[in-house]
Design a binder for these strands. Sequence first.
DNA 1: GCCGTTTTCGGCCCGACTGTTTTCAGTCG
Length: 572
Amino acid sequence: MARTNDDVAAVLEEYADLLAITGDEDFKVRVYQKAARSIGAHGDDIAGYDAGDLQQIPNVGAKIAAKVAEYLRCGTMAQLEQLRGRIPAGVRELTRIPALGPKRAMALHERLGVDSPESLESAIVAGALHGLPGFGAKTEENLLHGISLLRDAGGRVHLGVAMPLAEDIVGALESVRGCRRCGYAGSLRRMKDTIGDIDVLATSNRPKVLMDAFARLPQVTEVVVHGDKKTSLRTSQGLQVDLRVVPPDAWGAAMQYFTGAKAHNIRTREIAQHHKLKLSEYGLFDAVTEEKIVSATEEEVYRRLGLPWIPPTLREDTGEIQAALAGELPELVTEADVRGDLHTHTDLTDGHATIEDMAAAAAERGYAYYAVTDHGPKLYMQQMTLEKATAQRERLRRLDGTAGVRLLHGVELNIDPDGEVDWQPDVLAGFDLCVASVHSHFDLPRAKMTRRLVRAARNPYVNIIGHPSARLIGRRPPIDVDWDQVFQACARSGTALEINAFPDRLDLAADLIRRAQPYGVRFAVDSDAHAIGHLANLRYGIGTAQRGWLTADDVINTWPLDRLTAFLRKNR
DNA sequence: GCCGTTTTCGGCCCGACTGTTTTCAGTCG
C-alpha cells in the first residue's frame, strides 16, 4: 500500500531468495516470504515504526523486526549485504528463467561460475553443462528456450487483453464433449488490473479429451506441460494459459483453490489446519481420516472453515479474512447496482458514434441516466467550441427521455498545469455535470501536481476528477501526487474521483481507492466510452471498485437521480 | 525464524508435472 512497505517487502523477498539460493533451510525462506507479504499488505505506512511496532505485524518476530528496523534506519541490512556479497545479482536473475529455481541456479554458479542468464546461455552453447549431475540434454534445451522467453518476455497484460482471450477459451472448452463446467479463475477472476497468466478450470469425467482439445486451440504456440490433470500452454501473445481439470463434484473446492491470491490460499489452508482439516483443490478433508467433508461449492468450503463466502475480488489477504471472521465484509458494489454512466464521448469530439446511437446503447443497457461529456476547447485537437457544445445540448434535450433514459449534458474539461479548466463559471453553470481530467504535463513535481488536482477539486463546478492518476497500464506511470491531500480536498468539496473503466487505465487504481474511502470520498465508475462497444468495459471498473472494497453507497452513479443531482450541485 | 483452541518445542500449504532419476528432487502455481 504505502511506498515504504513495498520497499521493505521487496528487500525481504530478496533476502528470502538469496537464502534459498545459498541452500538455507526451506522453512526459513518461507518465513521471510511470509513476513514480506504481511508487511506489504499492512495497512499503515511503517516508515516511522520501531522494532516493537514492527513485531505487532503478523509473521514478524524479534529477528525480522530488528532487521527491518535496521533497514528503516540505515537503508539496508548488514546480513542482506553479506549475502549480496556472496551471490552476484545475476544469479538471482537466473531464477527468473522458467523451470530454473534456486537449487540449480546455485549449482550452476558454484560448479561453472555462471552468474547471469547471458553467461548461462554461453555455457550451454559451449557444452560446459555436459556431465553436470541433474542437467541432461532435455534440460539444456529447456533452459535455452527459457532464456529466450525471458529475453522477449511480454510480461503482464491488462484485463482488456486477458478477459476476451479467456472467454474465447472457456467458450471453446465448454463445447467439448464431456465438459461439465468451465470457467476462469486466478487473478482474472479477482479482476486484477494486470494478468500474468490465465487460469482456466473445468470439470469432466473424461479429462484427457478436454486436455487434448485445449492443446489444439488455434491460439496456442507452445505446449509447456501436458498431463491429465493440468496442461499449460503459451499463446501467440506470450501469455501462459493453465487448464486444470477436476472431477465434477470438486468444482467449488477447485474454484476456491485457483481463484485466491497465493497469500489468501495459504491463509485459508492454515485455517483448515487449525480445524484439523486439509484443504486442496479436490475438497476439504478430515486431516486424520482423509474423509471428504465438502467440495461442491465455494460457499460450503468457506462455511466449513467458519467464514462467509468471500468475493473473488477481495481474495488478496489484505484484511478480508479478518473482516470475514469479524462479520465485517463490505457489501460490494456490483454492475447491477449501476444506474448510469457519467463519462462518455460522441463523434462531436473523439468518439466514434453519434449522440443518438450512444444514447440508444445506454437505454439498451437499462440505464436510468446517461451523461455525454465530450472534450472542452482546451484539448485543442478536438476543435470544441462553445457554439458546438450549445448545439449539442439542444440536440440532447430533444432526445432526453427517449427509451426512459434521463440524458445529462456534461463536458470533460482539461485541467491545466495550474489547476484551471477550460471555461469560466458562467459557462460551466450551463452543464449538468463537469468531469475534469489531466491530459498533459504529466511530469510536474509532486507539490505542483498536488496543488493542480486540489485546485480542480475545489472548483465549484467540477464534479468528477477523471482518470485521476492519468496512468496508462504498461505505457505511462501514474502522476506523482500527495494523494492524501487530494482525497481530503475531494471529500470536503464534494468532488467524486473517477474509477475509469477503460482496461488500460483502471484509474483510480484499487489500492488508492481503498486509501481514499476512509476520507469519505465518493467515486464514479465510468466507461469513458468512445464507442458503443466501450460501454461494456464498465465491468472492469466495477471489478476495480470491488478491489477497493467499495459499496454501492460509495459510488454516485448507483444512486437514484435525485440524490445524484443533489450531489452534483456541490455546495454552490 | 515464527507461532500456539492439543504445542514455549516441534511443527511449518498442497499437489502436478518434468527430467533424470531406478524412487525422487526441483520447480511451479
